[in-house]
Nucleic acid binder design. Structure first.
Lengths: 239, 239
DNA sequence: GAAAAAAACGAGCGAACGCTCGCTATTTTA
DNA sequence: TAAAATAGCGAGCGTTCGCTCGTTTTTTTC
């Protein structure tokens, strides 16, 4: 799979995302009419991610957010009851969408090698498509309350377990060698995170998202496949 | 090299660190007597890293810092002129010490394979010994001013170039295969960062620093060494 | 198009912020 | 040990923060 294929299939528009958020907060959001609410939620989340990812969520004032979104202070507070709730809304939404799309991304692939490669590619492509959300989730996680922080950790561990399980299954089938699956999964996740955390670096090098994904796949396969196994990972043609 | 050996050799006590900071800011620090100044700088940096790493530097108030350090507001401002300057002091100190120790760590090792492995181990061990500093530098970099932010980026790129150069030298000698050295270095750095950024994860798993370092070394060698090369990386005995 | 309902506004509130400065306490000097 | 020098203190200043609410503007209803 390439990034072009992925983003055609995933169709994760901000509008759909905001509609989901609205459904989840129907009771607390004061605006009655859906089209208006969705439009404004879009403005709010766009502005939040833009300003907060530049200067940090704590440093972003509600006046900043008001200016960046084009909504007044009063209008903003029709959609959340406090700055902290806004933080939780962005976090939980990103978490939910990520988990779902990631699982869907490779569930039908059964060959262990191809399954691991697809999981890696899906994660890179997903974090590319939703880069501001991923960056925000990572950098602002420690400003969450105790309960929400625990959820964020659980989410991270769940993603990692997903990779570890794929590797374990491959080991059982004798396709992968015996390296610790949990630690391997942790290292994979570390490499995947760099793509959305250090975007300035890869943008400066004009590195495409597909190239990055393939590099990570190669590194992981070199580590997980037994010595001597020919590393033809993907069915796609190589140049 | 093991972590025990490294930390015995590096000897990077907080006291020495604070003495260096004092020398670098002799003109702006109002306290005249060195022993007093060093003692208070130690209190200030300890408290800053403790509080800021828990709730973020922006969220840390000067009253928090006063309470955590045991110094009054007035006493704090004898050592820096603004909260922003405190941020820059911590950042620049960490940067300086890191760069120096990292370079010293593997300059005498000449064999490419051993050299790359030593560079990786040194980075992991260094980030373990100075974990609060590394975590702080990473998480608070975007709150710096333009000039300082540029320095932080340059420092990151310099570290990466160090790894890339080691790999390039190994390729010239025909020891490593032809994978892009710059991108490989970026992936190595991503794995190294996870150790000090996600400490809660590895602490929960009771994973030792040496084990982590060896895992990264193995992964990198599997990727960089030509297929078929026996991966006996270190001179140390294996179980 | 008048009345009712919904959405948007933004000045202003109390609280908390970074930082200062007149003062006290401690140490050094002679 | 008196005088001078240094270190330490914390209430209070001006500012800015998150958030509210009485009012105005826009949209819907009939």
């Amino acid at each position: 799979m390439t990034y072009a294929q992925f983003s055609r299939r995933a169709r994760l528009s901000r509008r759909d995302l905001c509609r989901r958020i609205l459904e989840g907060h129907r009771d607390s959001i004061k605006t009655k009419k859906e089209p208006t609410a969705v439009k404004n939620l879009e403005l709010i989340f766009d502005a939040t991610l833009k300003v907060a990812n530049a200067k940090g969520f704590q440093a972003m004032t509600m006046r900043d957010l008001s200016q960046a979104s084009g909504l007044s202070m009063g209008a903003l507070y029709a959609y959340f009851s406090s700055k902290e709730e806004l933080l939780e809304m962005v976090q939980s939404t990103g978490r939910e969408v990520t988990g779902r799309l990631l699982r869907e991304g490779f569930e039908e692939v059964r060959d262990p090698v191809e399954r691991l490669a697809t999981a890696i590619r899906t994660h890179v492509f997903l974090s590319e498509a939703m880069q501001p959300w991923f960056f925000f989730s990572y950098m602002e996680a420690r400003h969450l309350g105790k309960r929400q922080k625990e959820l964020a950790k659980q989410s991270e561990l769940a993603t990692e377990k997903m990779f570890a399980d794929v590797i374990r299954a491959g080991q059982t089938q004798g396709v992968f060698n015996g390296h610790d699956p949990d630690l391997t999964a942790a290292l994979i996740k570390a490499m995947l995170q760099d793509w959305y955390l250090k975007r300035w670096k890869y943008a400066a090098r004009r590195l495409a998202v597909d190239a990055y994904a393939e590099m990570v796949v190669k590194m992981v396969m070199a580590f997980c496949l037994p010595v001597g196994a020919v590393a033809t990972v993907s069915g796609e043609k190589k140049r």
